[in-house]
Amino acid sequence: MKKITRITGWQAFWPIMILLGILIFNVIITGGSFLEMKIVDHHLYGRIIDIIRNGSKLMLLSIGLTLVLATGGTDISVGSTMAISGAVACSIISGTLLTGVGGNVFVAILVALLAGAACGAWNGFLVSKIKIQPIVATMILMVAGRGIAQLITRGKIVTVNSDAYYFINGGYIFGLPFPLFIVGFALLLSLLLTKRTAFGLFLEATGCNSNASKFTGIHVSKIKFLVYTCSGILAAIAGLIESAGIKGADCNNAGLMIELDAILAVAIGGTSLNGGRFSIPASIVGAIILQSITTTVYAIGVPPEIIQVIKAVLVIIICLFQSTQFKTAMMNKLRIRKVA
């Protein structure tokens, strides 16, 4: 019995159950073809691989946002940061920016990541030093970010022609898509950082009570600055995957509205949006759930426009179950019924 409660008490338990439910539903409606995997040219193909590959951006963003939300903040600028990093990388590779490096892909990636780090650091500076509310502070970059990206590409859609760059999205290692390895690496690094160092503890403390943490000697503003920078870098990587996927930089549409999806993924994972308890693996599961819902909707032939309505209903249900007021209200109703 104790073991069972330990398993069900794990934060990622319910998200995983939901995911399994969706997957089983998929297997039934497709009559088993959902699980099929083919090996073509030593590469693995299949629906599940598709979900993981297409969901990789969302997973990366949700890692960053889990850290930010754990401190009780939000970052709604990740979509714009994606646009900026894609614009920087593509401009360098196509030779319109930093012409001195001659379109070197590695330099381009490095500069794009630095740009993402700079965006994150700017958010972190506003939140931790100037003490602006996180939503407002990141809103500034959300509004300006796409404009800045447009200025970098001079208002054009920059296309690139570089196999090394395409590899970021379309490449395979050991038959598995390359984005999977990026996500795995980011996940490993973030888990090491939060589970094997005191950083995770400080993070949770900051989210639970920022004032109290300050008095116990935690450098709250440094922690906040760091998590926003992490979120910026991860968003930049997601931006690279996106732009490598479309083989160019589209500043208007890269990562449009994805920040909301990423926050939703974290919420599905059970991390409270008020800060405190968090779980990165649960957020990753949340991101996969969102991606599988999208795939399912396409698979059963419902018009894809309905996805947003489904997402909206999901958010509300999840939030209601996180709310203590809602739980007590429901409990009271049940109790009255039992007495009667």
Partner: peptide, 29 residues
Amino acid sequence: MIQEYKLQPFIVTLAGQFFMRGLCSVIST
């Protein structure tokens, strides 16, 4: 929902945003 169940205004209105935008596309794209 914001007042009675103490949900965050940001999240609830975000859901409202998805919901209305989704209904738009359901009516006509």
